[in-house]
Design a protein around this nucleic acid. Structure first.
Length: 562
RNA sequence: UGGCCCGUAGUGUAACGGUAGCACCCCAGUUUUUGGUACUGGUAGUCCAGGUUCAAAUCCUGGCGGGCCAGCCA
């Protein structure tokens, strides 16, 4: 366990604290995170990961990473690797405790035999359709299978032949003998084993029968002497079955506790829908920076610390909820504000010429790397006669509350000089293409000796020293807080935000970041936090906008519009 | 219509049966060489109806509302 941040007591931590105090498990706390390797982890999983690993760390216990790999037709090794990468990146360490449900196939098989011998399980020859039809409905009981009372020897023999590959898929299954009349569907003689002539990513072709989730999970917890088996509320109805298997088998019996799954505004979370976004080319892949996957968030520039803090703040509860993505973004900015070095970068360049500045002069100016962290030091930024500023930092028709550059207005160039706009050049269609200014040599560094104040400070980049770059700016993937809430007859894809990706070419960045490598995070002053994308190459920089700075000017403009 | 779980500001989350608090969002202001950060203040809440009690967000009953469950998926 590498990360143990303080956490207020939620209902699960309260239960564990009480158990520990009562010495219920001999003081032990063992949890587990049990992903199925059939897809990538997302922000919803992060909450479960932080809960399981966090609780273990706080109580001096341990958390196992266990792959729930009982369905070879859906699982792949590449997902095992991706999941391990994501959990490590988040900051958690399972040490030696990396397990696979498939490692327990032999034990599970023996347990199945035990239940058959006890007359608690039988081979059912009914077809999948027949089983479904005789299961009953939510309001009516099911009916017993005609094979329910087969003799133990016959069941043993049939199960052995299932294992030997004598039957085709779907020909028969092993079912637990519980109660077809139970109001809990999970107890209506649930399937324990099915035939699957598919090689498994770890056991190869050793098996052609595979245990179902319910017959696997509890026993796996038992083998690992898990104390608290935390899962989402979708499994609450399975708890009686979890308990039934463990009781009938008379083995070590962990406690299953359910917590509510979470949703996030402006995104979707299910593996199915995430996969559909990838397959439908709505995003570039599982790690598209707009995706809520951990790989997507990582590429976007999110820090693992911010995600952990987010999970800490949303807490744990039993009611399903939708967390505001603004809280996640807040946690991100809070973290990056303290750590990200500042740099000047212009997304939409507008040329500025300082007419009274010598043509061949270049100055090197001091710039603070991070005002929140003096130890980050300073750097030198080149200044010259021709600069680029942000296009929206200049307006010909500046309203009174506009503090930036405009004809006749004076502003401060960050860490450089006060400049005053004297002239504007336009193209044939009337677009401003060049702004002329004069500077005040006495304001070098950004302070005026006469105490004169300017309302605005803008960022800039020396034209001859600027690095060209591409910047990818992202907005929420969906334009509705709950994408599921779609117009009649349409689905969540109708809520996809057409402007979720905005690509800026020919951006101008100060030279200090020339050698930064993929993953490097920084703040472009006054704009937001950015990171170098893996697509970046020397001489052809590509940045992702991780998240913008809060922008109160945008709010002012927004209010004066409608 | 069966079973299980759950209802506290807009959102999320606290409160031995005893002053409904915190965070995000939003609004106003102070500071500021980032219209950032920081700081100050503000708006806003116990689903409804009964009952128990000196006292109910908390306990009981009944409504209402939401979620999950009818894979040989997990």
């Amino acid at each position: 366990m590498t990360v143990a941040e303080p956490q207020s007591a939620d209902f699960i931590r309260t239960i564990i604290a009480n158990d520990t105090k009562a010495n219920k498990w001999g003081g032990r706390v063992v949890t587990r995170f049990p992903p199925e390797p059939n897809g990538q982890l997302h922000i919803g999983h992060a909450m479960s990961i932080c809960l399981n690993f966090g609780v273990a760390a706080e109580f001096g216990g341990r958390c196992h990473l266990r792959f729930d790999d009982t369905n070879p037709v859906k699982e792949e090794t590449r997902y095992v690797e991706a999941i391990k990468t994501d959990i490590r990146w988040l900051g958690w360490d399972w040490g030696e405790h990396e397990y696979y449900a498939s490692d327990y196939f032999d034990a599970l098989y023996q347990w199945a035999l035990q239940l058959i011998k006890a007359g608690k399980a039988f081979i059912d020859d009914q077809s999948p359709d027949q089983i479904r039809e005789t299961r009953g409905t939510l309001t009516s009981p099911g009916i017993d299978s005609p094979y329910r009372n087969r003799g133990i020897e016959e069941n043993l023999n049939l199960f052995d032949r299932m294992k030997s590959g004598d039957f085709s898929e779907g020909a028969c299954v092993l079912r637990a003998k519980i109660d077809m009349g139970s109001p809990n569907l999970n107890l209506r003689d649930p399937v324990m084993y099915r035939i699957l002539h598919t090689p498994h990513h770890r056991t190869g072709d050793k098996w052609c029968i595979y245990p179902m989730y319910d017959f696997t999970h509890g026993q796996s917890d038992s083998i690992e002497t898990v104390t608290h088996s935390l899962c989402d509320t979708g499994y609450a109805d399975h708890r009686p079955l979890y308990d039934w298997y463990l009781d009938e088998l008379d083995v070590y019996h962990p406690q299953q506790i359910e917590f509510a799954r979470r949703n996030l505004t402006y995104t979707v979370m299910s593996k199915r829908k995430l996969n559909a976004l990838v397959e439908g080319d709505h995003v570039a892949g599982w790690d598209d920076p707009r995706m809520p996957t951990l790989s997507g968030l990582r590429r976007r520039g999110y820090t693992p610390e911010s995600i952990r803090e987010f999970c800490r703040r949303i807490g744990v509860a039993k009611r399903e909820s939708r967390d505001d993505i603004s809280l996640l973004e807040h946690c991100l900015r809070e973290d990056l504000n303290k750590r990200a070095p500042r740099v000047m970068g212009v997304l939409q360049p507008l040329k500025v010429i300082i007419d009274n500045y010598p043509e061949d002069r270049v100055e090197s100016l001091d710039a603070i790397n991070n005002p929140e962290d003096p130890s980050a030091g300073t750097r030198q930024v080149p200044f010259s006669r021709e600069l680029f500023i942000e296009r929206n930092d200049f307006r010909e028709d500046a309203p009174r509350k506009f503090f930036r550059l405009a004809p006749g207005r004076e502003v401060r160039l960050r860490y450089a000089y006060f400049i005053t706009c004297t002239d504007v050049l336009k193209d044939d269609s009337g677009n401003v293409v060049e702004v002329h200014c004069i500077y005040d040599p006495a304001t070098r560094g950004g302070d005026s000796p006469d105490g004169r104040k300017v309302k605005g400070t803008i960022h800039w980049v020396s034209a001859q020293h600027a690095l060209d770059a591409q910047v990818r700016a992202y907005e929420h993937l969906f334009s509705a807080p709950d994408p599921e809430n779609a117009p009649e007859g349409q689905d969540y894809t109708s809520n996809l935000n057409p402007e979720s990706l905005m690509v800026y070419e020919s951006c101008k960045i100060e030279p200090s970041v020339a050698d930064s490598t993929p993953g490097y995070r920084m703040q472009f002053e006054r704009q937001g936090y950015f990171c170098v994308d893996p697509d970046s190459e020397p001489g052809k920089l590509v940045f992702n906008r991780t998240v913008g700075l809060r922008d109160s000017w945008a709010k002012v403009q927004q209010k004066s519009k409608p």
